[in-house]
Design a protein around this nucleic acid. Structure first.
Lengths: 144, 144
DNA sequence: GTCCGGTTGAGAACCGTTGTCAAATCCCCC
DNA sequence: GGGGGATTTGACAACGGTTCTCAACCGGAC
């Protein structure tokens, strides 16, 4: 957030559009493809290390931050405040997450969107945003 | 979460029911009454200090933890992962929070509760819980 | 009063995250 | 094709919120 700096990065079509596609940034993006569920920055950093991709932890954080800002990845917080990341579709959606294995389903709820807007309007709140995540235990984990 | 330890603390009628009502715990509970909005543990600790109540920071954390577990206070996380607390009613509810001043409205949304349950069932997820918070700018802050 | 287990507090430890800054890298332009 | 300036990187330190440690302390039962 400097001052006049302004270019519609991201969300043009591919992630990382508008920024230099360095080896490190590509590696992080690729790593995100390897997961289907939410992972912490440190886990991603570890995966990269295992793959032989040497990327500094700070760079992983910086890249994830950037991708989050451009809405190419979703970031949410675990119960204990740790940030976890996952590549995402570009429509507004929420998550149904298994608290055992992390398996994630993206869900949409137009009714909820409408409800939050009307509640907010009703109380005179402007410029609304909301967070909604659903946690549960998936079939596989219930069985196991 | 030890093993056989089990006694229905809290939620009997008053907060802190079932535990020793020490000076420190009472002070924290009283401090929570002084706020109408979400505050961090450190802010609460500060308020206590200002009031001349000497309570260790660790104790504030421990007490808030306990009150959260017994559902006498709500805990939620700010965008940057910090835990904030607020005394709450005992019915299940969500919050409409002003991101400027923290002014909070408790809201209920039976439809949302139903929606999350059905979504979860639909995907075979069991033992469901969910988080839903709405952030916006309240009338006062929009005007100011 | 005495005893005992729950509680406290000061500080260290912890851990995820961000800042620092010199070195490396990249891209534009000549 | 090579220089130069801006961007990016990475090792490491610093930071901030939270939890742990453990000896001293206290409260309630008898």
């Amino acid at each position: 957030m400097t001052s006049t700096e302004h270019q519609e990065h991201g969300r043009a079509d591919a992630p990382l559009a508008g920024v230099r596609p360095t080896r490190q940034r590509l590696a992080v993006a690729a790593a995100l493809e390897a997961f289907d569920d939410f992972r912490s920055a440190q886990e991603i950093h570890e995966l990269l290390a295992q793959r032989g991709e040497k990327v500094g932890l700070a760079t992983v954080y910086r890249t994830l931050q950037r991708l989050t800002e451009s809405h190419d990845v979703d970031m949410l917080r675990t119960e204990d405040g740790e940030a976890i990341y996952r590549r995402c579709s570009d429509t507004h959606h929420h998550h149904l997450v298994c608290r055992e294995c992390g398996a994630t389903v993206e869900v949409e709820g137009p009714a909820v969107e409408r409800w939050t807007s009307s509640i907010a309007a009703e109380h005179g709140y402007a410029d609304i945003s909301h967070t909604l995540e659903i946690f549960g235990t998936c079939t596989a984990c219930t069985a196991g």
